[in-house]
């Protein structure tokens, strides 16, 4: 009798836990589904060729997001061009050169700290340092440099992780043939960590696309149509910042949802390509 009572309590516990787990998974999944469907339903009808290919004009009252698209592309390119050498280089230093354990710990701790700092603080310091102290004014370049600091830990981490998967025997083999350190690194080690670098790039692109708080005070709000050189040196609005401005300050929800749908599609593409890259390299590793 005693036994069956306990087993009843146990059974109740098990079924409650199971139900709670199912509920949680259902909540998570339906949230994702709802967000995607809602944004698409509200946004895609508002996407038109005119919206994508024109700049906004107060005269005609038309709204176009071409400048914002271009600004986003510029800032992604500029950020990656600057952050890649720094991040990959730092990762190489940590895994290939550094012998002082303390220094390694300090650098790794610094990177961890950077990844925890909220973007609004990056925006603030970026404004103080790049825009004011270095006198870049509010410009895409100042925004890109701020994003460089934000994305540095990501590139460092993914590169470092993949450097660690390059077998030590490759390095020994190359050293054993009398290759110098730099030659070993650029002929044998770096080709082995391409996957980490690409993964880092994809993650960073995602983060740059989604970033807004750090760009508000560094890159600005302008919608001017520029080439990349002029674009970087002048104030410019990226897609996310444009979404914020259209929604919060101008009440143009149709445009905001159109941008949200575009961002959502880009997010989907980024996730998909990250998965494909991982699959591709895993396959190649196993050959």
């Amino acid at each position: 009798m005693q036994n069956s009572k306990i087993s009843k309590a146990r059974k109740a516990y098990i079924s409650i836990m199971k139900a709670l787990m199912w509920l949680s998974v259902a909540v998570t999944c339906s949230l994702v589904a709802f967000l995607i469907i809602y944004v698409f339903v509200k946004g895609i009808p508002n996407i038109s060729w005119g919206l994508l290919s024109e700049k906004p004009s107060y005269l005609s009252g038309k709204i176009g997001i071409l400048p914002d698209i271009l600004n986003t592309v510029y800032i992604v390119i500029a950020t990656l061009l600057i952050v890649l050498p720094i991040g990959v280089g730092a990762a190489i230093y940590l895994t290939e050169y550094a012998q002082n354990k303390k220094l390694v710990n300090i650098i790794e701790y610094a990177a961890e700290t950077l990844s925890g700092i909220p973007s609004i603080i990056y925006g603030l310091v970026g404004m103080l340092f790049f825009c004011q102290f270095l006198n870049m004014k509010t410009s895409l370049l100042a925004g890109a440099l701020t994003l460089v600091i934000m994305n540095l830990p990501t590139i460092m981490r993914t590169t470092q992780e993949s450097l660690k998967t390059v077998p030590q025997s490759y390095r020994e083999g190359a050293f054993g043939l009398g290759a110098g350190k730099w030659r070993v690194i650029h002929t044998v080690v770096l080709p082995g960590c391409v996957d980490g670098i690409i993964t880092g790039c994809i993650l960073s692109v995602g983060r740059i696309l989604g970033e807004s708080a750090a760009l508000l005070f560094t890159a600005g709000f302008a919608h001017a149509l520029n080439g990349i050189i002029d674009g970087l040196s002048s104030s410019g609005c990226t897609l996310t910042v444009a979404l914020y401005v259209y929604a919060k300050e101008q009440g143009e929800f149709g445009i905001a949802f159109a941008i949200a749908a575009i961002l959502m599609i880009l997010t989907l593409i980024i996730n998909l390509s990250a998965m494909l890259v991982e699959k591709y390299f895993r396959k190649r590793r196993n050959v």
Binding site: P167, Y170, E172, G173, A174, G176, G178, A179, G180, V188
Partner: peptide
Amino acid sequence: VNELRREIGMVFQKPNPFP
């Protein structure tokens, strides 16, 4: 040391061709 290693070559326990 690199010249030394050129003159004194090495073959490792586990075959380690480069990829």
